[in-house]
Amino acid sequence: MTQNVLMDILQATVLLLVAAGATVVVRTRDRTRLVLVLSGYGLLLAILFFTFQAPDVALSELTVGAVALPLILLLAIAKVRKHQE
């Protein structure tokens, strides 16, 4: 019983963190900083999936959301910036 309550608290906490993280992502204006925030948000989502007992999805989110996507976005930003110079 206590274990269930603890799990509920954990899940609620992570859900709140994800909501807060999404707000921070939307509110970030600077592009480079945005990518780093997005990467952290990917990590949060991975933790969310893990606490909801989906370790497979958590791994995919971790690799794509926290690593691959920010990397590709950073490179695209560097490319655009080089053009503007």
Partner: peptide, 25 residues
């Protein structure tokens, strides 16, 4: 490890492949 343990653990070729690629990064 991830790419070769899809059948036993929560892992798989996709996740393992992305992590292998990060080694090059």
């Amino acid at each position: 490890w991830l790419a070769s343990h899809a059948q036993t653990d929560p892992s798989g070729g996709f996740q393992g492949g992305v992590i292998l690629a990060t080694a090059f990064m």
